[in-house]
Design a protein around this nucleic acid. Structure first.
Lengths: 343, 343
DNA sequence: GAACTCGGCTGAACCGGTTCACCGCCGCCG
DNA sequence: CGGCGGCGGTGAACCGGTTCAGCCGAGTTC
């Protein structure tokens, strides 16, 4: 285990000062082309890698961003969404040689505390916040802290920080239009957490569109995104009088669970029940019948979030942080789980 | 955005030297109880949080561990395994106030490079290595580097680093014994990557047990863990003459895909086909019929891996790093997807 | 030829902790 | 009363980078 190579070693080997080495390695003016080339060559030869802590201490930046996820291990594990998002984020970050620090928390208080600590320690240069809620304490908290942050979701009214989002209303209209065209008039929806921003946006969009189309019924049931709750709600829905002919799920996991319940009750899909899933993970193509679902490129979404965060981090501290990035809306991918409503 | 509080500020406020503050905050001898209490009170009042970079620079430790995952975004997203593992790791790490740095890579070369860089930069104090292979270059690489590491999987012969693992052979025997008791004689298995260590261990265990039980056939097909391949292999299996009466899958995703194919082909489960999944995620309970699967506490497994790594990090550099931790083997959870073989 | 500019480089301060050598003081012992 | 040991604390060096004031010498200007 040989000692690490430092810029002092390089300086000694090249016969110059530490300062010159620093300028050369960082591509700044202050050294001639010849000296720069010599220093770079020596550095490469000695296998120099700068010490992150030393650099951070000087420039007061961590070259890392953080994500605190407030979801149970079970939800996290089974929802493909987060891993895909993270992998997109990661791709952009590592291209900019930023690291990703991950923490899983239980409560909002804990999450706020993590942000506070990360920022005070300068462990991260910024954070991405998922699961934006309608009344989200975190938004003001990080803004007050001065911690660069980007909200993964939106749009957020009166936001003091950037949001990266896609229009959730448009896909709602697309789904209902599609189901309506197939003759469905009694539609139910198994939604996610009621307090999440995008859930509210979808709630409204469905309600308005349903009214416009003159649907017989369009009820929404909020859940926690788990398969268990998805199954329970579906079971209740399908056992009721005047049961819906189509059910829309706010994530893929619940849709799969719903399909399982339909099988269990001997209800043919799509013969007597159509199923639509929001968020098209590979999971939706594994079932039989394959699930009609809303496709969006979550990984690309993650990349855009990371890009937005990097731009905030790179910007002046007092720069405008209220911009928002709108991504492409999700697109309907019709598959075998939807069909005409039985007369 | 007020300036950060440093120990110099505290020292000034308390009328002592920086050194005294450091001793007081770190609970070391060198200051009297009274002074210590005063310093701690002032630190708390001023909201002091130590700068991570400065501490790292001094003590030459990052207070963070890294994981580089070499799986495609799609596999990562859909396999609950990794997120559960990570959440277990996280729980132990944050209890020890260590951070977790995550990176997703494409190739082994890239992964090795990440380890090299992380260690050279002192960005992490150690790493966890998943997906241990039979011939794994990474093991020697990190050992040569001197980078503290723990292999998530094993046992590894002639290992130069600790491994945390569970016996994969025992569950194999349990599954085959169970299926055999149900009358199954033609069993197939859809396995994971052939180059992974645990795949090989299972391969052998199945082969030996099958021979012992005198099964008619026990074929293994290797795959990449994705639902697509699981489905494709299952389709081929079920269309063949002398098709198996039971199929064992090496992960839950492929098992779900296999169940979908059975539905598609109109083959009743468990009437004409029994299905067993390795790794019991909530996914296995969402399908209909629910999948018989091998349950293990992946989150707890992650915790044990993290603990092992922390102990290696805390140990002397020349301490013995070849210990291995054996966890509880997975347990069979029979559900509705398995039943007696049709005569 | 004196004054002035400017590129190239040096030396030292600095970031915010940790650590170590050392010092003053008090009590105790012979 | 002199010497000794140990407690409580100080001051400075140190970790490995970045950055800035300033210096030197060559070229330009008048």
């Amino acid at each position: 285990m040989t000692r690490r190579v430092t810029i002092a070693d390089i300086a000694a080997a090249a016969g110059v000062s530490k300062g010159a080495v620093s300028y050369a390695l960082n591509g700044r003016p202050g050294v001639s082309a010849a000296t720069r080339a010599k220093i770079l060559a020596i550095a490469a030869e000695m296998g120099f890698v700068p010490n992150r802590a030393a650099r951070s201490l000087s420039v007061s930046s961590a070259q890392a961003v953080g994500i605190a996820l407030r979801r149970s291990a079970r939800t996290l594990g089974i929802e493909p969404y987060f891993m895909e998002l993270i992998s997109g984020i990661e791709a952009t970050l590592s291209a900019g040689s930023f690291g990703l620090t991950l923490q899983i928390v239980d409560t909002v208080e804990e999450e706020l505390e993590v942000y506070r600590r990360w920022w005070a320690e300068r462990r991260v240069d910024g954070v991405l916040m998922c699961d934006v809620g309608t009344e989200d304490r975190r938004l003001d908290f990080v803004a007050d802290l001065g911690l660069p942050a980007v909200a993964v979701g939106g749009p957020i009214e009166g936001a003091r920080l950037p949001a990266v989002w896609h229009d959730d209303a448009e896909p709602c209209r697309e789904i209902l239009g599609y189901l309506h065209a197939l003759g469905h008039r009694r539609i139910a929806r198994v939604a996610g957490f009621a307090h999440l921003l995008h859930t509210g946006i979808r709630d409204n969009a469905y309600a308005e569109t349903a009214a416009g189309l003159g649907l017989e019924s369009m009820e929404t049931f909020h859940s926690d995104y788990t398969g268990e709750q998805g199954a329970r709600i579906t079971r209740r829905l399908l056992s009721s009088a005047g049961r819906p002919t189509a059910v829309i799920y706010d994530n893929d996991v619940m849709a799969v669970a719903g399909l399982g319940v339909a099988h269990e009750l001997g209800i043919d899909v799509p013969g007597r029940l159509s199923i639509v899933a929001w968020d098209d993970s590979p999971l939706c193509r594994l079932t039989h019948p394959a699930l009609t679902s809303l496709t969006r490129d979550i990984s690309a979404y993650g990349s855009q979030c990371a890009e937005a965060l990097l731009s905030v981090i790179g910007a002046e501290p007092d720069a405008d942080r209220t911009f928002s990035v709108q991504c492409l809306p999700a697109q309907l991918s019709p598959r075998a789980s939807t069909g005409p409503a039985r007369a």
